[in-house]
């Protein structure tokens, strides 16, 4: 279950990033500055998320909390079309420069969801580690699944999804996917008890 969630979260991050370029293009073009902004903001979000996630995971971790962590970006993505247009139009009107405009737009639109998705990795690691003897294996598997999800998310989105459905629809769909996936976590107790015997 958790493995699957990690995979999906990895996929959603990259899929959202690819779709993000489509969101920005009407106002900021398709230039290298747009891509640079997008990628750097997503990585900023992820690294902040990893750090925060590690800290949060040490405070009484539970699958219920994990559920909430995943539902948060789910809601943001589900409501994304409501605010993405106004935000990019507003920055377009401000016109703060060819580099700053897409960077600011990316920060407002994509930073918070990617922080939450970043939290998922260390948090699930904490939940999944049942013994310190196999912790390396557990963490390695989670990393691999998350990145593999990202690969699939990138390919499926850019090769296929973008050619069959609208960008808003896809982003909302991902929001729903995250929420649906996280719902059962709210009622589960998936935590492994090491209980610090060592």
């Amino acid at each position: 279950m958790i493995y699957f969630i990690v995979f999906i979260c990895g996929a959603v991050v990259m899929s959202f990033e690819i779709l993000g370029s489509r969101i920005l293009a009407p106002n900021f073009g398709n230039s290298v500055f747009v891509w640079g902004s997008l990628i750097s903001i997503f990585l900023t979000g992820l690294s902040a998320g990893y750090y925060l996630g590690g800290r949060i995971a040490d405070i009484r971790p539970s699958s219920r909390k994990l559920g909430l962590i995943i539902i948060a970006p789910g809601v943001l993505l589900l409501t994304f079309p409501l605010y993405s247009g106004p935000v990019s139009d507003w920055i377009f009107m401000k016109d703060i420069g060819v580099r700053s405009s897409p960077l600011l737009a990316s920060a407002i639109l994509f930073l918070v969801p990617s922080v939450f998705l970043g939290i998922v990795s260390p948090y699930t690691a904490k939940l999944m580690i049942c013994s310190l003897h196999t912790s390396g294996k557990t963490i390695g598997t989670l990393y691999a699944l998350s990145t593999f999800g990202s690969i699939i998310g990138t390919l499926v989105t850019s090769f296929y999804l973008i050619t069959v459905a609208g960008v808003s629809f896809l982003i909302m769909g991902q929001g729903i996917l995250l929420i649906v996936l996280a719902m059962p976590l709210l009622f589960m107790n998936l935590r492994c008890n090491i209980n610090n015997t060592e």
């Binding site: 489509r22 293009a25 973008i162 050619t163 069959v164 609208g166 960008v167 629809f169």
Partner: peptide, 10 residues
């Protein structure tokens, strides 16, 4: 083709 859906490359 719209801003939402424009698979021009394909």
């Amino acid at each position: 083709l719209t801003d939402d859906f424009a698979p021009v490359n394909l």
